[in-house]
Nucleic acid binder design. Structure first.
Length: 453
RNA sequence: GGCCCUAUCGUCUAUCGGCUAGGACGGAGCCUUCUCAAGGCUCAAAGCAGGGUUCGAUUCCCUGUAGGGUCACCA
């Protein structure tokens, strides 16, 4: 109750604060997502802050990867900052801390290691018990004594993480800190600094980690590129599906609904219902979810996406691929699968005449290929009677199905389908015929008949 | 190891103390079907253990166990 009253007065401000020392990864995406949903649902601000105080490890290409990843996801930030451009601000606070005697310049014993300073700025630890209420986990208590006088800056110009974070969160008016569970143990240090600079305590929400199959935190070291968002972008997943999947990894609406559009997530998201335990990332479910979102797309959009991929393999035109697209859609769970099925040869016969052994034409239930020949000849005559402009799946089926039922469906349809596709597994013959058109269909059946002689 | 967090089907999860423990993914089977894909139906599959509290615990408390996170002049 108290929380809600305070929120009425203060506009919600959250931030996603990645460090550009690696590509945007799954955990980061989900942290960004929860921050974004929370900001939008509270009509608040979503700030993107690049935490690049570590000059050695921060790289521009990583920052670009993060920014473009967020753009792909559709997370527009209201403000953008780079910590490397705010050193004068940290310096001001550092000086104040020094002047107030809350921090001090510490002479370090000489270590032969390179890069170690002889002087750093340490925070004077008041050695007290710190407690904070986490929106997801409830009360968490720490004794900060064990933290000792921790280092907050290498020098006045070189602040370290804890100092920069606290100063920025204060300066930017962050009301809610939503971040990964791995930051829980950082929280007491940061609260100590907050108290020292007179900053208010924001609300904290530590979200559970995304785990691998072994229930360990996803790491680049162990899993390579599969932890990067770009990997999933490359595999052809839809941003809306990816978001939906990540949102449900650790959160659920309490209803059976699983497929959400972004605006529904914004409306229904409830930070208090976030799970406490870590969740294992399961790509199988992502695939299923992507397919569900695929089916939600307008047919024209699907057709054009499929066309852009198919045309890199075959010399074809958009209109033809459009006819094929419902059939292709049935066989993929992401646009990335299209190349895979093409490479497996599953679509070849739509673009060139098939090559096969004549014996393959014979239905397994028939003993004599002359039966096959008879059926093909009759089918040919039936197909030939259909007018060019009537060559649709339904019409073809109507014309052919009676004969097939009379003579045995397998006995008739298998040879026809094989003559068209040259494959044991393929879409049904009517669909193939309608796609190929009458002329090509007739040609292929005639070729089959020539093979049999 | 210290500190902190967590604990329901293989996985994601529902359950405001009453449960024949529900749903989804994946799996199996069946239906549809010339084959494949898609689709439909059905089934298998879980409360970490031991103590409390309670008429009653998956739900609340304690202990143990297990898993995870974190212990930088990284973030």
């Amino acid at each position: 109750m108290k929380m809600e009253n305070q929120n009425k007065e203060k506009k919600t401000v959250v931030r996603f604060a990645p460090s550009p020392t690696g590509f945007l990864h799954l955990g980061g995406v989900r942290t960004a997502l929860f921050n974004y949903l929370f900001a939008r649902q509270n009509k608040g601000k979503f700030i993107l802050r690049i935490e690049d105080t570590d000059k050695e490890r921060s790289k521009k290409e990583y920052e670009e990867d993060i920014v473009s990843g967020l753009k792909w996801l559709g997370f527009d930030s209201d403000e953008f900052y780079r910590q490397s451009e705010r050193e004068n601000i940290y310096k001001k606070y550092l000086k104040k801390l020094l002047d107030d005697g809350k921090a001090y310049v510490s002479k370090e014993s000489e270590t032969a290691e390179t890069g170690r300073r002889t002087e750093v700025i340490r925070f004077k630890n008041p050695n007290k018990k710190i407690s904070f209420s986490d929106m997801i986990r409830g009360e968490i208590v720490f004794d900060t004594t064990e933290l000792k006088d921790f280092v907050i800056a290498k020098s006045l110009e070189e602040p370290l993480y804890h100092l920069a974070v606290v100063v920025d969160d204060f300066e930017m008016g962050i009301t809610h800190i939503i971040r990964g569970e791995d930051h829980i143990s950082n929280t007491p240090r940061q609260i100590l600094i907050q108290e020292a600079i007179g900053a208010p305590k924001p609300y904290y929400a530590h979200i559970p980690l995304i785990l691998d199959k072994d229930r360990a935190k996803l790491s680049k070291r162990k899993h390579g590129e599969t932890v990067s968002l770009s990997y999933y972008i490359k595999r052809g997943y839809l941003p809306q599906a990816f978001l939906n999947f990540l949102a449900l990894l650790g959160w659920n609406p309490g209803t059976p609904q699983e497929i959400f559009k972004l605006d529904e997530l914004i409306r229904q998201f409830n930070i208090k219902k976030i799970q406490k335990g870590g969740a294992v990332f399961n790509e199988e479910k992502l695939k299923w979810m992507n397919k569900e979102h695929l089916k939600l797309l307008p047919p024209e959009k699907i057709a054009s996406e499929i066309y852009t991929i198919v045309k890199t393999f075959y010399d074809t035109d958009a209109e033809y691929v459009r006819k094929l697209s419902p059939m292709i859609l049935d066989r993929i769970s992401s646009f990335g699968d299209i190349s895979a099925i093409i490479e497996a040869g599953e679509l070849d016969f739509f673009f060139k005449k098939p090559d096969y052994e004549k014996n393959s034409l014979k239905w397994k239930g028939d003993s004599d290929i002359r039966t096959t020949k008879t059926h093909l000849e009759y089918a040919l005559s039936l197909i030939d009677k259909i007018a060019d402009n009537q060559f649709s799946v339904d019409n073809i089926k109507n014309v052919l199905f009676g004969y097939a039922e009379q003579k045995g469906k397998g006995s008739v349809l298998w040879p026809v389908r094989f003559a068209l596709s040259g494959r044991e597994k393929s879409p049904d013959p009517f669909t193939i015929m309608a796609a190929l058109g009458k002329r090509e269909t007739l040609e292929r059946v005639k070729i089959a008949l020539q093979k049999i002689k």
